[in-house]
Amino acid sequence: MTFVSILYGLLFWAATLILVGGVVVKVRQYWNTPAPLKIPTTPAPVTQRGVVWRMFREVVFFQSLFRSNKTLWLFAILFHLSLWLVLIRHSRYFVDMNDFLVFMQPFGRYAGFTMVLGLAGLWARRFLVDRVRYISAPSDHLMLALLIAIGVSGLMMSFVTHTDVTQVKAFFGGLLTFGFFGDEGLPADPIVLIHLLLVALLMIIFPISKLMHAPGIFFSPTRNQVDNPREKRHISGWALELERQGKLYLDELKK
């Protein structure tokens, strides 16, 4: 057991805590913040089922983005679909292999390439399209650099310098069961260490960055509201209080 393995073990525990805790805090904030007005971007579904279908199309197919910009859509879909495939493949480090995972392995393996390709396309836009260049902050560039670095280091392990994956699996299995860091810790392979360091970093910044778009999209009122304001009265708690107390302004309300 090396010092590095212990460090990495602690790092991943912390990163997981921050990722899960941070996302829970943000999602609770979104959940608890009222939406006082009906603002779906119309035409919008008139039933709750319709809204679920609209959201499905947005999350899975990026429908609005497709209408908006075909090149961007292509890179975006390439990256995100590949990301899911890669994530599915990675789940073998945390759960027992099953038929589905065995079937998905090759897809996940090559998805690494399409993921990096998609990311490269997205990054290129940030330099080549003047409008996108203008709106990009350093963090927008770094986010793509980080993901590309994760992808490339992953691909290296898969296709260039093979790493002892059973040892990695034992390490994470240990972390999961709080059985500490596996018998042997992590392989002493710089690429695996870089890859894992970057992944931990990604997990840590997830809840404090724009990556919150993943849970956030489900809370977007313009996409998740039913278009039925005439049929069903929609009112938020703070607005109802104005009515109850017969006041026009919030600062006139008695607490």
């Binding site: 603002i39 961007l72 975006a76 990009s136 724009k210 956030g216 977007s220 009122p221 313009t222």
Partner: peptide, 24 residues
């Protein structure tokens, strides 16, 4: 305002600067 309007809070957080809106 961001405590009273979910739209504001969510929109301020989740923009990824993809630029899809820039020419619209």
């Amino acid at each position: 305002l961001k405590g009273r309007y979910r739209s504001l809070q969510v929109f301020l957080d989740i923009c990824v600067k993809c630029g899809a809106c820039t020419d619209k």
